[in-house]
Design a protein around this nucleic acid. Sequence first.
DNA 1: TTACTTATTGGACAAATGTCCTTTCTGACC
DNA 2: GGTCAGAAAGGACATTTGTCCAATAAGTAA
Lengths: 193, 193
Amino acid sequence: MYQTLKTLDFFTEAELQEAMEAATFHVIPKGQIHINQGEVCKDVLFIKKGLMRSFYYNSESEEVTYCFSFENAFFTAYSSWIQQKPSPENIQAITDTEVYIIKRHDVLRLQENSINWQKFFRTQAEGAYISLENRIMILQRESAEKRYEDLLERHPEYLQQIPLNYLASYLGITQRHLSRIRQNLANLKPTVI
Amino acid sequence: MYQTLKTLDFFTEAELQEAMEAATFHVIPKGQIHINQGEVCKDVLFIKKGLMRSFYYNSESEEVTYCFSFENAFFTAYSSWIQQKPSPENIQAITDTEVYIIKRHDVLRLQENSINWQKFFRTQAEGAYISLENRIMILQRESAEKRYEDLLERHPEYLQQIPLNYLASYLGITQRHLSRIRQNLANLKPTVI
DNA sequence: TTACTTATTGGACAAATGTCCTTTCTGACC
DNA sequence: GGTCAGAAAGGACATTTGTCCAATAAGTAA
């Protein structure tokens, strides 16, 4: 976490130290839910090792994967964090995951009088916005097959690490249909052995 | 604009004045495009009166409406504004629209040393994130009919002011299908006269 | 009012996607 | 190897959504 923050080049050494002191190390076992839907989010995670996802239930009570988070990234139930309202999302570890946890109380203290931390959280919010913009432009009017191909291009690592049932709902389709798409593409472009 | 900013309660009177001085008034005629896809966004609009939209072209070269903006709101090609990269969106006036324009140069100057402005832009980014999260949760795994009903609930004003072909692509469907959905709902819940 | 343009609706059929299940594959464990 | 559980694939059919047009409806200018 220290290195990731340092690389951003926003912070003084004192600010970095302050952040590290506020963080505590934990391991979240595979499958465990760190934040439940309905809870108000009171902390932010930094993933040191492992893989997490966020999911929610749609109006048919189907489990829908909203997003994933990988190593060396911050992760939280962001809308709940921002608004301090009950979270629509569940935050869950896909594998055993090592994280640093920083409590909201400490984050607010860091932000309070630091234009650097304000800037950092602004850029985090902007980055989050941009990745959602990309997803909307894909979800709105691209076919399921295009969406899958786009995922292959942008995030080939997803295919390596994430179960297909999670990927299917992430793409806005059923696993049955995802399987069909993969079948089609395999026939069109057979992998070279 | 002054009143809208003042109500947020972020700024000193001097900061408000500074912002007002940076703004210039313009009228964008109906249909005119203020920012073209491919341009780098260099200003932000405040809509005093009127109605604008953002749209882009998908991989089939269909025009897809990305979002709308109404009176007393800031509006810009946000991802381009953030990254200073070519915009995927076109920003267009739906009706004759009165706007204040603030150039990026001036915005950066305002932000430079003001924690208030940093905070303002952070909250703008956070608000933008949240509205996209809502849209993704709708687009991902709700039926087109649910999406339309959700729009009726959250933004009944859209139905009053926005042509249905724009709304259809905003909802991720064709106008043919939107018409079908409206037909179904009209049969189920006939309007009381 | 008339003519003309634009917005909206809807029929007929095609393509995409979902539902319900069963089968196949894969990896962990004994 | 054999067994078991979870992940992934796939058959058969139903539903949703799209495509291509034509038909109305509504709005604007002369």
